[in-house]
């Protein structure tokens, strides 16, 4: 999936959980889910489940472990989509 398209989809997915609007407006690959967007860690589970539903993939806990930033999430989604 194209970078911009994936980024846009992720941006929509995280929206309900963010607590820092300013960081959300500036969301980029470098954005950190917890440190920047202030997503609480329980909601990070929801982000991962939403990502699974949106892309129809399953993310194992070993992969989930790295998903603390937009960049890491994009890499994992692309990897899973490629393996489909």
């Amino acid at each position: 999936m194209k970078k911009e398209e994936l980024l846009a989809k992720l941006k929509t997915i995280v929206k309900p959980y963010i607590q820092d609007e300013e960081a959300y407006t500036k969301l980029s690959e470098e954005t950190d889910f917890i440190n920047d967007l202030k997503i609480n860690s329980a909601n990070l589970v929801d982000v991962i489940l939403d990502v699974e539903d949106e892309f129809d993939i399953r993310i194992e806990n070993d992969d989930m472990e790295k998903m603390v930033s937009v960049k890491a999430a994009m890499a994992i989604v692309n990897e899973k989509l490629a393996a489909k």
């Binding site: 860690s41 990070l44 589970v45 806990n61 070993d62 989930m64 472990e65 790295k66 998903m67 603390v68």
Partner: peptide, 8 residues
């Protein structure tokens, strides 16, 4: 080292 894996 940060990680996100509550099950671990």
């Amino acid at each position: 080292k940060r990680f996100f894996n509550p099950k671990r």
